[in-house]
């Protein structure tokens, strides 16, 4: 009997390092929130309700085990609240923590652990929220603090000096990460501002030592005047490109997942019928075109087709699919060609 109990307890996750399935559920919720492209609490609450996420604590579990499960649940959700996750995910994690903390069934409630080394980052986050007027998120955080939902700790986890147990590497979900990179970390706001100041200063100095005090000598013109502005534009473009890429990446991932699931059949079907429709249209159009302009030349016909069809008939489904399948190279080439900011991408 005891063996059976032990095994069951293990399955429930009390004996293990995490609650099985929970990570998937949290990431699904946060993913949906990310997709909603908002940081509004209301939207989050909607997503939460759709999933009836408060039932996550349900089941016939005794108090001791429930405490453990709840602790682990909060611990898991807390990870997403800290870097390297992107701002939006962190806001989502804040709401998630709020929801989990409020709906937990423990009495008294289990607390959310915050380590001292993470605190400055959390305060910066809170300041960010206020500065950017995301008052709902700031309010939620304030509410949690007032409800004294936190344990202010020295370290994020309890440390047991367990050498034998394998330490699980935290696998961060790539899509949730802040799209930070070398470019962003190198060229920050401060750096740009500083550059701007230096540039101004430099120009003034040149003016001072020039014959004509209002304008620097031509002999002194050793750098491009537009340098700072150009740099700023390039950085912006790069950031934009990266965001687009991320979105495509997300879409691609989604379609992958979709096709992995059982909906594959229906998806294929609808895709097939779509294609059939498109083909039919093309056929129809080409026939009608032939009827209408039988004497016209080929290029005329082509023009007719494109002008009439717009973009959403024949070609676009196919093209969309292609880009979404391998978004990265396509996207990269695009931006390289169009924007010509290749030096920054390497």
């Amino acid at each position: 009997m005891r063996a059976g109990l032990g095994a069951a307890a293990g399955e429930l996750g009390a004996g293990m390092s995490s609650v099985p399935g929970l990570q998937a559920d949290c990431e699904e919720l946060l993913g949906a929130f990310q997709e909603a492209d908002t940081v509004r609490f209301e939207r989050f609450a909607e997503l939460w309700r759709e999933r009836r996420f408060h039932t996550i604590f349900y089941g016939r579990i005794r108090a001791l085990e429930r405490n453990k499960l709840t602790k682990k649940t909060l611990e898991l959700a807390q990870q997403y609240f800290l870097p390297p996750y992107a701002f939006q995910i962190r806001v989502g994690a804040l709401y998630l923590l709020y929801g989990l903390y409020s709906t937990q069934l423990c009495q008294p409630k289990q607390k959310i652990r915050i380590a001292l080394k993470d605190w400055p980052e959390i305060q910066r986050f809170q300041q960010d929220l206020i500065d950017s007027q995301h008052y709902d998120a700031a309010y939620i955080f304030r509410t949690l603090r007032l409800a004294r939902a936190f344990h202010f700790t020295a370290m994020p986890k309890l440390l047991n000096y367990r050498t034998k147990k394998k330490i699980q590497e935290n696998e961060f979900k790539e899509e949730f990460k802040d799209p930070s990179n070398r470019v962003n970390s190198l060229i920050t706001n401060d750096v740009l501002e500083e550059l701007m100041n230096i540039h101004d200063h430099y120009q003034k100095m040149k003016c001072v030592i020039s014959a004509d005090k209002s304008q620097p000598d031509k002999a002194l013109s050793l750098i491009k005047d537009e340098f700072v502005v150009n740099l700023k534009d390039l950085t912006l473009e790069h950031q934009e490109w990266q965001q687009n890429r991320m979105k495509l990446f997300l879409n691609a991932k989604e379609t992958d997942e979709m096709s992995n699931k059982k909906e594959e059949g229906t998806l294929l079907e609808s895709e097939g019928s779509e294609r059939a429709n498109a083909l039919a249209r093309i056929k129809y159009r080409s026939y009608s075109a032939v009827v209408e302009a039988s004497k016209s030349r080929r290029h005329r016909q082509v023009k007719l087709e494109s002008s009439e069809s717009g973009s959403n008939y024949g070609k676009s489904p196919n093209r969309n699919k292609k880009t979404s399948r391998r978004p990265q190279p396509a996207r990269r080439r695009d931006s390289l060609e169009i924007k010509g900011i290749s030096p920054l991408h390497s």
């Binding site: 940081v39 992107a86 701002f87 007027q133 995301h134 962003n184 706001n189 950085t235 950031q239």
Partner: peptide, 14 residues
């Protein structure tokens, strides 16, 4: 500004 915050800290007017 709100949007800038969503995008994370970046250059001004990012």
């Amino acid at each position: 500004r709100a949007c800038a915050a969503v995008c994370g800290p970046g250059p001004a007017g990012a």
